[in-house]
Nucleic acid binder design. Structure first.
Length: 562
RNA sequence: UGGGGCAUGGUGCAAUGGCAGCACACCAGCCUUUGGAGCUGUGGAUCUUGGUUCGAAUCCAGGUGCCCCAGCCA
């Protein structure tokens, strides 16, 4: 619905509309080409959404095509994980294909190019190929094998395919121009020899595997793709992307590049993410601090928040780092709160408990207080919360000597216990170390529900749980994984700016209703933040993840005052 | 010192030759049984130099800065 309202437009959608209007294409078909060699992270969502939405908005279709051209890196496990995450985002596709589905046809196309004298088998060593490619400023040199006969090339290619030659001994190359200023046009490799490991789908039937430039573009052509949307670093590949189908005389899709999405205070590179996992710096790919979709899901993010965030970021061709733009995590979190605020049931939970004893409250009395489930959504109704003489409140909500503008509980001050009574602090009990371990207070029985019949006002409302009824739970408080805005800077550098306090484990108390909350369910703990039940929960000990905190104006004021 | 791409508040986007606007962040206030939410308001930007034009963020030229490319990775 927000799609209709906002009518998102950007240079990509405009280009597609233009193509339809001027007849370059009369339908729209996009493709999502993930390589199944890792888990999806939030940066991928940008590409996923534009591919999906461009097709959808134009009555077209999206094909999910796994780019499995390199058996040394790809695994079936990731195929399933990627589909699972993509479905969670709400992406729909008409079919799933694999680059490997087209290996036979692609091979025929390669032979055709050889027959046309547009491709050749090169026997140079990898080192020689590299040395003869030239540099950014100097032209390359032609391979001594560049002018072999078509017959010899065909024979060699067939024998490469059969596995007669060892890895690295030969490649098939397109014959273009070794002096081309664009490095991608200097006789790019089309096939390399790989004997092991076996391919996750074709097993050991192939000994040669196509390179990205050769496979990807031709697969687009074979599938009748109209718009091939990709990130900025492929801009330089476009001439090659167009060269192949031009020579072959086949369907020519249009490639459009856009800036990829990075996020501040985190890393996106697969290699760096893997180091975090492998070195045990996080608990796994789904550690709630990771930027992977699996992790964000576990943390409590909603698909809507992620999708909205990406949509609000828009699409452009600006690149400030790593072929992309850097999104602000604060904006992501704000988009998340926006969604969660409207949809999450409120509950009371105390994560850093301090005992409060209401001295004038009857010892054995228990009252059921009525509490609103979601002030943003009246249809969510109300619930009962038990109240008794001994409570827990948040340590932050009491100060023995209050700083200026502190309105919460302190000796002599009266506050409201949410949905319960006004209480006034009378005195405290300390331990040997001088720490406050008990706060004593008296309540005003006429303020039940939270209003005083005499019109008396209090400046603060604090949350609480009844000690006798509360459920003890584990609370995992998360913060940014890195304390530097751009940890990507430098190679080793990113580990040096890991935030040592990105995870804090607390033992807290929650209202009874929460004892049986299902894994994955989300709540707002009033005045604290949004929390989500973690999969590590047990009946004895539920575990809650902090999804995102509530904005804390007081904390900000206090910090600024210092 | 080759080729390609890009420069608009702190960040991300808009303005498609006609009053530089939006979101987040920031600041001030109102309201509040969440110091949440909501509401109101303030401040802050067209990389630079020239040119074309009645008029330029937009078109042209030079300069500067940033991003990407030398895998048998994608």
């Amino acid at each position: 619905m927000s799609l209709e309202e906002n009518k998102p437009t950007d240079f990509i959608r405009e280009a597609v509309a233009e193509d339809l209007k001027n007849g370059r294409f009369n339908y729209v078909r996009t493709r999502l080409p993930p390589e199944p060699n890792g888990y999806l992270h939030i940066g991928h969502v940008k590409a996923f959404m534009i591919d999906y939405l461009v097709a959808k908005e134009n009555g077209g279709e999206l094909i999910l095509r796994f780019d499995d051209t390199n058996p040394t890196k790809e695994e079936t496990e990731f195929v399933d994980a990627i589909m699972d995450d993509a479905r969670w985002l709400g992406i729909e596709w008409v079919k799933v294909t694999y680059a490997s589905d087209y290996f036979d046809e692609l091979y025929e196309w390669a032979k055709k190019l050889v027959q046309m004298g547009k491709a050749y088998v090169d026997d140079q060593t990898p080192e020689a190929v590299s040395a003869n490619r030239g540099t950014l400023t100097e032209p390359g040199k032609n391979s001594p094998f560049r002018d072999r006969s078509v017959e010899e090339n065909l024979d060699l290619l067939e024998r490469m395919k059969k596995g007669e030659f060892p890895d690295g001994s030969r490649i098939l190359r397109a014959k273009i121009d070794m002096a081309h200023p664009n490095m991608n046009m200097r006789d790019p490799a089309m096939y390399r020899i790989i004997h092991n490991p076996p391919h996750h789908r074709t097993g050991d039937t192939w000994k040669i595997y196509p390179m990205y430039d050769w496979a990807h573009g031709q697969n687009d052509s074979m599938e009748g793709i109209t718009h091939s949307l990709c990130s900025l670093e492929y801009r330089d590949h476009r001439p090659l992307y167009e060269w192949f189908p031009e020579q072959l005389g086949v369907w020519k899709p249009r490639q459009i590049e856009f800036a990829r999405l990075n996020l501040n205070y985190t890393v996106m590179s697969k290699r760096k993410l893997r180091r975090l996992v492998e070195e045990g710096l996080v608990s796994g790919w789904d550690d709630p601090r990771m930027p992977t979709l699996r992790a964000m899901r576990r943390r409590g993010y909603t698909a809507k928040a992620i999708v909205d965030f990406v949509a609000e970021m828009g699409y452009s061709t600006v690149a400030t780092s790593n072929s992309g733009v850097t999104g602000d995590i604060a904006k992501l979190e704000e988009t998340l709160r926006d969604d969660l605020n409207k949809t999450s049931a409120r509950r009371m939970a105390v994560i850093r408990p301090l005992k409060v004893i209401i001295d004038n409250y009857p010892d054995d009395l228990v009252e059921e207080m009525e509490a609103i489930n979601n002030p943003e959504d009246p249809s969510a109704g109300t619930r009962k919360v038990p109240f008794s003489k001994v409570l827990y409140i948040e340590q932050d909500d009491f100060r023995e000597t209050p700083p200026p503008k502190y309105f919460r509980l302190y000796p002599g001050n009266e506050v409201r216990l949410r949905y319960a009574y006004f209480i006034k602090c009378t005195h405290v009990v300390k331990n040997d170390a001088g720490e406050v371990v008990e706060v004593h207070a008296t309540y005003d029985p006429t303020t039940r529900g939270g209003d005083s019949p005499d019109g008396r006002k209090v400046k603060s409302t604090i949350h609480w749980v009844s000690a006798k009824h509360a459920k003890e739970v584990e609370i995992r408080m998360y913060d940014r994984l890195f304390n530097k805005e751009n940890p990507e800077e430098g190679e080793e550098g990113f580990l040096a700016c890991l935030n040592p306090n990105s995870l804090e484990i607390l033992t807290g108390y929650v209202e009874p209703l929460l004892a049986t909350a299902e894994v994955g369910s989300r709540f707002q703990f009033e005045r604290l933040g949004y929390f989500c039940v973690d999969k590590d929960s047990t009946t004895e000990k539920p575990v809650f993840n902090l999804t995102v905190n509530l904005k804390d104006t007081w904390a900000k004021m206090e910090k600024k005052g210092k």
